[in-house]
Write a protein that binds this DNA or RNA. Sequence first.
DNA 1: ATCCTATTCTACCGGCCGTTCAAATAGATA
DNA 2: TATCTATTTGAACGGCCGGTAGAATAGGAT
Lengths: 233, 233
Amino acid sequence: MGDGALPLKKVKPNAEKRQADEPWKAFQVRHRSMEVKRDAVMKTAAHLFLEHGYQKTSMSLLAARLKVTKPALYYYFRNKEEILVECYRSGIAEIEGSLGRLNPDAGSAMARLKIYVHEYATVVLTHEFGRCVAMIDDSELSAQTRRGVRNLKRKIDASVRSLVADGMLDGSIAMCNPKLVSFAIAGAINWAGTWYKPSGELSSGQIAQAFTDILTGGLRPKSSKTRKRTIPS
Amino acid sequence: MGDGALPLKKVKPNAEKRQADEPWKAFQVRHRSMEVKRDAVMKTAAHLFLEHGYQKTSMSLLAARLKVTKPALYYYFRNKEEILVECYRSGIAEIEGSLGRLNPDAGSAMARLKIYVHEYATVVLTHEFGRCVAMIDDSELSAQTRRGVRNLKRKIDASVRSLVADGMLDGSIAMCNPKLVSFAIAGAINWAGTWYKPSGELSSGQIAQAFTDILTGGLRPKSSKTRKRTIPS
DNA sequence: ATCCTATTCTACCGGCCGTTCAAATAGATA
DNA sequence: TATCTATTTGAACGGCCGGTAGAATAGGAT
């Protein structure tokens, strides 16, 4: 945390790595690609948004954290809202990635659902932009921007629902309302984002596993063709 | 709706009932018990908080909805925060009521847990103050007030955990981490508060039932009925 | 050394916020 | 009717916000 004066003009070779932990260093050098600095802004903003909430995070504070002045931010983003939207986009892309990686040919739908729930929890607990998707209410956004973001979220929801529906067809998941199942999963995990602390006694992996069990355990068919040695009632 | 000029000075006999739907009528008459007007403020505030968020709900807007001017509110509450805190208190009391009504002598812990989950969902979906507890982030509060509110919430959480622990003892609930179960339940249901619309296709009762099934289904012991055995070493 | 332009800064705007206080008012009381 | 007090109001406060205009500057290119 020692923020001693650094009169450096040239970046050191390991600056790229440093930037991961101290995003403001991206601004130490004047000429650097737009993308790098946008990333630095987003990353810092995400942390502040998650810590204090979107509304209570002022552009001045964000600028201060990046060791720049406020107007500099407006060189990289049109306004505060755009920063949040980009955080959302990034987080949603991450989650969609998890969904896309599920191989439809491998295992039952239930097996795939379990993998997804586990991955979703991991992203929401450990990935800053994933956390934004889970925790920051999109009602902070203007009407039309919100519509865009919600469409993206809806796509994820739709994928999960169809996963559940598939499971009901292949017998790996009990009869249920896929919409409500999808919401229950999203809710329980998103909520975990609000209380999980990396320094806490439970690791993100433990939480992801436990939630996978709790949330998919209730979906086991009570008796079905794909059972492996179930108890005769 | 039609807010025509109402030069009434006296309330009509059915005013008490009307006030339920139109809280501002509590302020139509100057001399009325403090409690009635405080309730009116809280009720209206809760609706606004839930609709626009706490931060974005201004005291001016709240006053306007109650057809009073801003300073009048400060006659009934010290500040904005106190209004939110009272909403919390009321909601938490409602939830604690549900927990208190569970008869420890009747049925298994699992049966009681199911009842509680159902009731919690109902409160969070239908009761305005319950919704506040579920939806409004208490980080909006000042540090010391927040501590008080969190203590109250923790009591609820502790009750649910011990309910789950009881279930593991009486064999009605499978081995699990009570803390995570409690969080999963709270999360899934609190989240429902964010998307549930009374006018939607799903009734609060349907949602409460489905969530009870999904969330407690995964807790069924995998083998055997009620066995009084403790943890098999 | 000079220029050029991408980047950052200084200084400021209008607006809304929560809150306060003294003055006005309504309505119960006598 | 006149009085007294619980309620309500008008007017204003300091403060911080998101955002902008335009000047300053750094640093690569020549």
